[in-house]
Amino acid sequence: MATEQSFNILDPFSSIDLNISDRADGIKGWAISNREVLEPIKSVFNSMIVSIEQALLAVPPLVMLLLIVLIAWQAAGRRVAIIVAVCLSVLGFLSPDAWQLAMTTLAIVVAAVITCVVIGLPLGILAGKSDRFETSIRPVLDTMQTIPAFVYLVPVVMLLGIGNVSGVIVTIIFALPPLVRLTSLGIRGVNESVVEAARAFGASPSQILFKVELPLAKPTILAGLNQTIMLSLSMVVIASMISVRGLGNEVLRAMGRLDAGKAIVGGLGIVMLAIVLDRITQGIGQSSRDRGRQKWWHHGPVGLIAPFITKKRENSAANTVPTINTERTNEA
C-alpha cells in the first residue's frame, strides 16, 4: 500500500491517503441509518407518479393519441400535429404492449419534469439575479451533469430503495441543470433598458419579474425546459436498472438476453416519445408573432371552437379592433 512507502516530494499523491472513499462510506452509513426521515418525501413522489400513471393509463390509447395530437396542434400547429400523429402510431404498432409501457415511461418523465420546473425555475431566476449565487451553483450543476449516473444510482437506492421514486430522483439530478442554466441565461439576457423603464414607471421587483423579465426570457426558458425533457427521456434506460418500469426496462431486459429485436422495439419507442415531446415543447417556445401575432386561443383546435363558446366576447373585441394602414402617412 501507498501508506507504507516513504514520502516522495515528486509524487505526493501516492504516498498520502486521505481515505475519502471510506469517509464517504461513513456519510452514506449515517444517511442510511436516518433514512426514515426521507419517508414522507418518498411517499409524496410515489403518489404523484402513481396518479399520473393511472391517469395516463385510464384513457383508452386511441383517445389518448387524439388528445396528444390536439395538444400538439394547439401548441405547435398543424404540421407538428401530423408528425406527432405518425410518431404515436408507430409507437403503438411497435408491439402490443408498447403503448402501455410508453405511458409508464411518460408518467416518470412528467413527474421528473414537473419537479425540475418546481425546483429549477426559482433556482434559475435566483442565479439570473445574483452573480454570487450563479458562481456558487455552477459547480453543483456541473457535477450533476457530468458525474456518471452509476455513482449516485447506488446511494439513491440505498436511501430510497429501488422503484419509481428513485428513478425520478435520479432523473431529476441529471435533467435539472439545463433548466437552471437557461433560465438564468434568459433572465440575464433581458434588455436592461426595458427593466429600467419598468422601474421608472413604478413597477415592484415582483412585477418586473412577472410582467417583464419572465415573459421576455420565455423563449430561452422553454429551450431549457425542452432540454430537461430530452435529458429525462435519455435517463429512462439507466433508471430501469433500479427497477423503473416502462420502455427503458424493455431495452435493459432485451440487452440482458442479447435480444436485439426487442431492444429495437424499446429503443424506437423512446425515440418516438422523444420526438413527440420535443416537437410539442418547441412549438410552445415559438413566440406568438411567428404565427401572425395571434393569441393562442385564436388558432388551432381551440380557435375553431372558441368562437362558439365565447361569441359575445369575440364580438365586443371585434368592435375595438381598429382599421389600420391608413395612418402610415403620419411619419412621411
Binding site: S193, V194, E196, A197, A198, A200, F201, G202, V212, P215
Partner: peptide, 25 residues
C-alpha cells in the same frame, strides 16, 4: 421608502428614454 417611491414613479413622474425601452412583448 420603496412603496412611496414606486407610487411617486408611477403617478407623478413620466420618463422617456433615448433607447425608447418599450416592452417588445
Amino acid at each position: 421608502n420603496a412603496r412611496d417611491l414606486r407610487a411617486l414613479r408611477a403617478e407623478r413622474i413620466g420618463m422617456v428614454f433615448q433607447s425608447m425601452a418599450l416592452m417588445p412583448h
